[in-house]
Nucleic acid binder design. Structure first.
Lengths: 340, 340
DNA sequence: ACTGGCACTCGACTCTAGCGAGTGCCAGTC
DNA sequence: GACTGGCACTCGCTAGAGTCGAGTGCCAGT
């Protein structure tokens, strides 16, 4: 079923107007505000077709039209023109991110920036450990039978774990252990460490052995099994904009979903930088978020991907701007982290 | 102005009923559900007095009574009977917190637990750095002119900073530096470190000096100036319970306030463990939270205080239960952290 | 293929009336 | 003097009726 150019123009106009006004748009308004060059009656015919095809719908019989998820999808895929960031926005990005003092700081600033610019809920994943390499391992004696293991990743992330040793261990041995694990593991990607850790255990004999065995399990736990992804969130207050019109009245399910880290990870995970992912309404796998749209992408230096970031908002959002902003912020953060 | 026992009983009954039903309570209901031993008419007279004194009010002329902030205050101070935790709750607390693997984990679990038990928004402050001691300092070379400084506190918190050295520095010197700072600083409370850091700089001469000077400024920054307090939050979805009856319709200001770490710190900061703080409605200094109540306390092993935790909810909350839960969780966490 | 005109739909808003929970007050009782 | 039963009154809530108007679908005409 063909949609000629004018019908597409009408759809675009409907989306743009609806996003701007938040009210169902009628045929008359449409011809007034856009140069469509035809009469309202003609537009109405086009609308009827668009509705039949499922791109728009009427909230009630005697109301204007509203885009459906499918309509937004078509808009995003084929109709939206890229909206370049304003100089003010560019400046905001730069200003916001300079002076970040450590990784936590970078992430926090980023998520706030994103929330502020898009006026939506922003989500930023910390650089994934799975894609990081070991920069340094540190063993700090806490008592004679306890060590604290600290792992520093090249992305700046730091993980810590307490190691309960099977028996007391002299300080010199701790130094030996530290040296051993560092020699073997520094520089390798976390995902690749298991065989090396195993090798470590095999190599060691004598008094050090029991300690090394314990340490190895904690190491594996820290490096691969339990490397929790971390996530930062900001801008939940933005959900309340637009009264309760969006999200049919209840923020509940959305807030609930946003508290689940697992859910958030699914949301923004696994997209290569430069590729944008837009999930509109029903396209979301997470039921609680069927009333929202999610715009996300990966970030990282160049093509490598360190983590994901994105925003969650009403399906009725300004896609072009949002997409542009998310992309810009992702790029900026990627570059910033590359400097470490 | 004297409030005799029965008037107090009436106030208590009003608070309890209103909290339970969320609806203005009238004199008839009151005598039905509580054994007050008098007629509705008498209760009405008491109510009139209570209203005059500002403890309750009528939403509209022909409605029942609702407690005012002042009424809740009196209730909390003098009328509420301690509600011991149910065994199920005790068990939940224990189950929730065992198996926590590091500090992050403890804090996250705690905040979720608290949100779940109280069915409100929970806030937990990480153990404050100001009250921690240095357990270990680590210097990891990142490049020839950059070090990563990692500070491990006895509370389990780990802070990191990048140090840009004035010039290249050989690995051996890094080892020397590390030894120096550790010798001098390990074991002292962060707040007490500045003179020691200064002493360190004065002691060192020769090639190491410029590096030490730079390091010292970063040290000071990390240890005292910029030790950002960290905070965890959970349960915002609980704000939506009770429809929009609480919070007169808009969650906006509350969500906004909850995103400001500074605000949160003020909320839950600086109460000794065992002392509970309850701020009801207007008693809150933060304007955005005038419609809420905050129940908070400090936690820590014994009497020392490591940080604060608490919950934020509608003024119409079940104070006895909430207070009991917050206290119990705080104790539990305090003990848990004492084991490190 | 487009347009002007027209009848129609239906939500939003206003107005009115009736209901009933809850009150304040007062005279009467223990 | 404290409490009670009774009664008139208030006022928010709900339901129903009426009106308005934006917006539509359809059709005949250009």
């Amino acid at each position: 079923m063909g949609l000629d150019d004018r019908k597409l123009a009408v759809l675009r106009a409907i989306v743009e107007d609806y996003v701007a006004t938040q009210e169902p748009v009628g045929s008359k308004m449409l011809v007034e505000r856009h140069q469509l060059g035809v009469s309202p009656a003609t537009v109405r015919n086009d609308m009827a077709v668009l509705e039949e095809e499922g791109y728009i719908r009427q909230p009630h019989t005697s109301a204007g039209r509203v885009p459906t998820d499918r309509g937004y999808r078509l808009f995003v895929d084929r109709l939206s023109r890229v909206k370049p960031l304003t100089p003010a926005e560019r400046r905001a990005i730069e200003r916001f991110l300079v002076g970040a003092v450590d990784l936590d700081d970078v992430v926090h600033r980023t998520v706030r920036l994103l929330a502020q610019l898009t006026r939506q809920v922003a989500v930023v994943q910390y650089p994934s450990l799975a894609r990081s390499s070991v920069r340094h391992l540190e063993l700090v004696p806490v008592s004679t039978t306890r060590l604290m293991l600290v792992m520093i990743a090249d992305t700046g992330r730091v993980e810590q774990r307490l190691v309960e040793l099977p028996g007391p261990i002299p300080p010199d041995d701790v130094i030996d252990l530290r040296q051993l694990v560092n020699e073997k593991l520094v520089g390798t990607r976390l995902a690749d460490t298991p065989p090396l850790v195993q090798a470590l255990v095999d190599e060691v004999s004598g008094e050090l052995r029991p300690a090394m065995v314990t340490l190895s399990t904690v190491l594996l736990e820290t490096l691969v099994e339990r490397h929790e992804e971390r996530i930062a969130l900001a801008g939940t207050a933005n959900l309340t904009r637009g009264g309760l019109l969006d999200f049919q009245g209840s923020l509940r399910p959305i807030l609930e979903a946003l508290e689940e880290e697992v859910v958030l990870l699914k949301l923004i995970g696994e997209v290569e930088p430069s590729a944008m992912r837009v999930r509109i309404g029903d396209e979301n796998e997470i039921d609680n978020l069927r009333a929202t749209s999610v715009v996300s992408t990966g970030y990282g230096p160049g093509v490598t991907i360190l983590g994901g970031l994105g925003v969650v908002g009403p399906t009725r959002m300004d896609y072009p701007s949002t997409i542009a902003t998310v992309r810009a912020v992702a790029r900026y953060v990627g570059d910033l982290l590359a400097q470490n």
